[in-house]
């Protein structure tokens, strides 16, 4: 059973300044009784959500409203300061595209390594499938990624990251980084991936994308839920009206 359950989750994000990384400074601070006040920002504030299989949740909100932090929290990157978190299912966090890429390696090796990091066995046929999706020439598989244009690089990374379905998919600002020609195809693949996943959470500024892909949109503000909007799949009419008025 795939589910995500967050109850009253808070995350206090410690902001380490240059001095906070210094042990000497910290020890000295104790000796001269300087209060080593750690600055803390509440990145996620009393967040509660229950998601069952089939949930498509969009996270919207301005920069710094805690979208990415929330996704990382669900992925287990950050430990919550308080609250209970229970995630059941296979989580695939795709929060940054460049993670784990070595530009000196040939494309093929990079794909293999990325698949291994994701816990998959890179077989010949899997790599060929991924390569077919990128629509790049086969001989480029043997070229180091350093020689790729950024658009080509994105194609490879996107194709690799979306090669396998997952129970829970966490996406952060995804389609905006994919180049234009590729965008349509990429979105098709992403929607396909989304349809296979039991739970999807997408953080994005792109309201249209969120409305196309999600069943509900949570607007975040300073780590709190500002509003939750249910999206009716066919008619997004009323929402558009509201948006125009706003």
């Amino acid at each position: 059973m795939v589910s995500i359950s967050l109850r009253n989750i808070c995350l206090d994000y410690p902001l380490y300044g240059a001095y906070d990384f210094s042990l000497k400074r910290r020890l000295l601070g104790h000796l001269i009784r300087e209060p080593g006040e750690m600055r803390i920002i509440r990145a996620v504030d009393n967040f509660t959500i229950e998601a069952e299989a089939g949930a498509r949740i969009g996270l919207a909100g301005p920069n710094g409203s805690g979208k990415s932090t929330l996704l990382r929290l669900i992925a287990g990157v950050y430990p919550p300061s308080s609250g209970s978190i229970a995630v059941q299912g296979n989580v695939m966090p795709l929060l940054g595209l460049n993670a784990g890429v070595n530009l000196d390696f040939v494309a093929e090796d990079n794909i293999a390594l990325l698949l291994r990091i994701g816990g998959r066995k890179p077989t010949r046929s899997v790599i060929d499938d991924i390569w077919a999706f990128t629509e790049l020439e086969t001989r480029m598989q043997r070229l180091p990624l350093r020689m790729f244009s950024s658009g080509m690089l994105m194609r490879v990374l996107f194709a690799t990251a979306t090669a396998f379905p997952a129970d829970i998919l966490l996406l952060d600002e995804w389609l905006s980084v994919v180049d234009e020609h590729f965008a349509e195809k990429a979105e098709g693949r992403l929607l396909n991936l989304v349809s296979q996943a039991a739970i999807v959470m997408i953080a994005s500024h792109d309201q249209k994308l969120l409305r196309r892909t999600c069943s509900s949109i949570i607007n975040l503000d300073h780590g709190r839920i500002a509003s939750t909007v249910a999206v009716e799949p066919p008619a997004t009419h009323s929402l558009e009206l509201r948006e125009k008025r706003a």
């Binding site: 609250g83 209970s84 978190i85």
Partner: peptide
């Protein structure tokens, strides 16, 4: 109500996976 996941170590990846990924 708000027991943090520390109680059950959030073994995002099993030990075997950890070793395997590190080796790769």
């Amino acid at each position: 109500a708000e027991r943090s996941p520390t109680s059950e170590p959030p073994q995002a990846t099993g030990w075997l996976d950890t070793v395997r990924i590190a080796a790769a």
